[in-house]
Computed example of a mutant assay.
Amino acid sequence: MNPQKGLALGYLRLIEERNLFQGAALVTDLRGIPLDFRYTEPISPTRLERILYGDALRVYIREEVILENLLKAVEVKPSLWICNDRELLKFLKEHAACPPIFLESTSYPPLDAVGEVVSQPEPGAYLVQADPISAPLKLVVPVDTGEDAVKSAVSMLIEAAASMEILEPFTRIKRALEAVATGEMAE
């Protein structure tokens, strides 16, 4: 199967550890080949910022500082944003130029056929069999996402799963950010 020309998957990952926030976006073609990579430097709010922003600080940093900047910085625009943090869906639905989905692995047995989609009790949630042997993936879309958008996302995931492990780019992002942090980029 030839990947559809021009289609790209965008992976967004936000990392929060202690008092540090950081984000990255990796855009790949449907074979997993990187087309664009952007990241933010780690952000550590000061004590004064924590006091002034209060409970709004986390949302402000994640959405207005990290996500907005990543969405603007990415030069290769994806056909679908994939995130591994459900909290990002609403923001991405409102601000991204393409549909967002949340995706995670499951421990369910494989469904009967590649491409099979099973609705879940949770609104906007589905199990998707993306390849013939792996456990189905749990796909969550914003609640008001239309059926055609879900079918389009599933189609891209199935096509990509023929030549790549769909969730593996999240590991690449984490490792790339670790390499940047330790200065190991040139090795």
Rank of each mutant, 00 (worst) to 15 (best):
E75R: 07
V140H: 00
W81K: 00
K138A: 10
I133A: 04
V74E: 05
C98G: 01
A97W: 09
T106N: 09
L80I: 04
S163L: 02
T28C: 14
T106K: 02
S134P: 15
T28A: 04
C98K: 00
E87M: 01
V141T: 11
G115F: 08
G115S: 13
L157V: 08
I66K: 02
W81T: 03
K5Q: 14
A161R: 05
E16L: 02
V154L: 11
L12W: 06
D85R: 01
F91Q: 02
C98V: 15
R62A: 12
S119C: 04
D55R: 12
E75I: 01
F102K: 07
E63W: 03
R18D: 15
E17T: 08
L80S: 03
L70N: 09
D29N: 14
S155G: 13
T182C: 01
G183H: 05
F37L: 12
K151R: 15
L26A: 08
L139N: 11
P78R: 00
A56V: 13
G146K: 09
P132W: 09
S44Y: 06
E184M: 01
P42W: 08
A135N: 15
L88Y: 05
E184Y: 00
F37I: 12
P136T: 12
Y108P: 00
G10S: 07
M156S: 04
A153H: 04
D55G: 03
S105K: 11
K5M: 13
N19R: 06
P110F: 00
Y126N: 08
E178H: 08
I173A: 13
I101W: 01
L139T: 13
L89F: 08
G10R: 02
E187V: 12
A125R: 04
L137G: 06
L92I: 12
A162W: 06
P132Y: 10
